[in-house]
Nucleic acid binder design. Sequence first.
DNA 1: CCGCATCCGGGGCGATACTG
DNA 2: CAGTATCGCCCCGGATGCGG
Lengths: 218, 218
Amino acid sequence: MRTYGEYCAVARTLDVIGQRWALLVVRELLLRGPCRYTDLQSGLPGIATNLLADRLRELERAGVVRREAARPPIATDLFRLTDRGEQLRPVIEELVRWGAPLMAEIGDQDTFQSHWLLTPAELFLTDTTPDQPPVTVEIRAADQPPVHIETVGGAVRGRPGSAEHPDAILTGPPQLIVGVLFGRLTVAQARARGLRYHGDPATLRRLRAQAPTVDRPR
Amino acid sequence: MRTYGEYCAVARTLDVIGQRWALLVVRELLLRGPCRYTDLQSGLPGIATNLLADRLRELERAGVVRREAARPPIATDLFRLTDRGEQLRPVIEELVRWGAPLMAEIGDQDTFQSHWLLTPAELFLTDTTPDQPPVTVEIRAADQPPVHIETVGGAVRGRPGSAEHPDAILTGPPQLIVGVLFGRLTVAQARARGLRYHGDPATLRRLRAQAPTVDRPR
DNA sequence: CCGCATCCGGGGCGATACTG
DNA sequence: CAGTATCGCCCCGGATGCGG
């Protein structure tokens, strides 16, 4: 463990979560909930297996991650965030906000996983008419497993997996989905470029994108 | 430049500011404003000079830092944050919030600089009676150059350097100052352990510490 | 299969020396 | 003062092995 050796809150935080892959491990656990080792591996394309083991050990020592035996149906251990680890959510959210302008284009070599959309969806969408019955939108990005978002008390909640009775379904390449979620594209613009939209057109309009990149209210 | 190669806002942000020392360079520029190369070096104890040069180049390429010729009195270039770099402030603030519990103790080997206190002061202090005339508190931590904090419109602003007419002066070891600023210690408790306080006792009471570690309102 | 440990090559990092 | 140059070292990445 290399440390900055500074009596400064920023430096001490980076001592814990500043190494390579550490915050992405936290991202996976925040988005997917408790995970097996191989779940994490699949959510972190390109990570060396020894590094994943190292990071999990270090994060466990730091009180960010807890390892526990799973319930009988599952034979293997699960890794989950502690309360202290959950408190990293605002850090991740600010990283997402700052990174929004970097999402305009996707590279040929870039990997993509659909659950990475969930934090942006929760951050940048809101329910404009929370008094009406809740709605659910399923998102099918590229050939990835589906995810869905649902309104809950004025906010928007994102979850992995398919929706039971979606009011709308978005299908298309990642950058179009991202364009809509981050507020850079309207649904109409995205449809013109190849996004497919099934269901009531009013559904997604209801989840108006907030200020996309800069000018966040706070 | 090593990259995660992910189409994910978190990963792309970390591609820019995730390397060692990068966010601490940003911290320095946020706290001290435009800096010369040697200013940065002195604020980043232990950084190798080639690494500082590398980071500045990379952050410049990424649009976070701008290099500019200083006004005539100063012969050398200055580095300053761009608007885009300034927008990293919320990221730094969340790192400070999360790191607050890590500041309970100071290690023998730890370096310390007084301006590192400025972000915590601004985050965790507030002006409880903004209608009254503004106040200023000077902080003299250990043998460090003084910094000061002042009330402005209900908030608290921290600045390097001495105050012109401080209403109060705090003098003592870093961990006692930190204890007060982060709300872990009352002034009375800190004074009992060796903190020295000059001026009107009501001054610092007015800047009530907010919830210290967890339970932030948002 | 799952969850690593081990080995090895390459590069980011750290310390020092040196220069315009 | 503001870097560049050089050199180890260790972290990281990739591959393989291996016990449960």
